[in-house]
Amino acid sequence: MTPLLSVQGVTKHYGARLGCGDVNFDLWPGEVMGIVGESGSGKSTLLSCLSGQLAPDAGKVVFDTRADGPRDVLTMSEPERRMLARTDWAFVHQNARDGLRMGVSAGGNVGERLMAVGARNYADIRAQAIDWLGRVEISEDRVDDRPRAFSGGMQQRLQIARNLVTGPRLVFMDEPTGGLDVSVQARLLDLLRGLVREMGLSAVIVTHDLAVVRLLADRLMVMKGGRVVETGLTDQVLDDPQHGYTQLLVSSVLQV
């Protein structure tokens, strides 16, 4: 078996300042990897480099493509990378407004992704959109409403539907539950976990919420100042942290 994603020595500087340095890991099919660290630790920079939104200064991001096997995403042509981003990848932004078209109806937001990969039959697209809205618990009578009329939690669920409708194999999530109140977070976590299992998705989740990674991630990577300071099984890193920074992070969580 080959890893779905193999990250080798990815480094990004902003001028003289390090964004992320020499990051290496393999992500296997069906695996969920969490990346934690405080603000400014390089988690989001890394996620942007992995998902092709930002060009790193050095390193390789090798993705196991359906057609040609493992290929370095960074050396692909722009159209190839865009196609991959539409068919095999999904990106769930922290702020749903960054991942949605706010002026287009909920159904349109989901349907647009389908049309981008070649769907043309209006009735089919609408039926699939409604099916996906149902899966993320948005009722059918809201299909023609614009996301502007949705609550924050609904917008986030709509963004997830829009991203997963094309059956991607790899999902990047940047603080998917950030800014939502806890009851909505729980609902979203439950939903994500179900989808990951049913669809056999692999995912990379960036968050600073340790409770979220404990429930969602199989493996964990801890970043500080642009460097990876510790990696391992999620429960092992959280229950028996080895690095001083991770120990501080874990012991700083307030108990409820």
């Binding site: 391992g232 099984l233 429960d235 092992q236 229950d239 028996d240 080895q242």
Partner: peptide, 9 residues
Amino acid sequence: MRMIYGNYL
């Protein structure tokens, strides 16, 4: 026990 489970290193 936690070491056997891989929870502790």
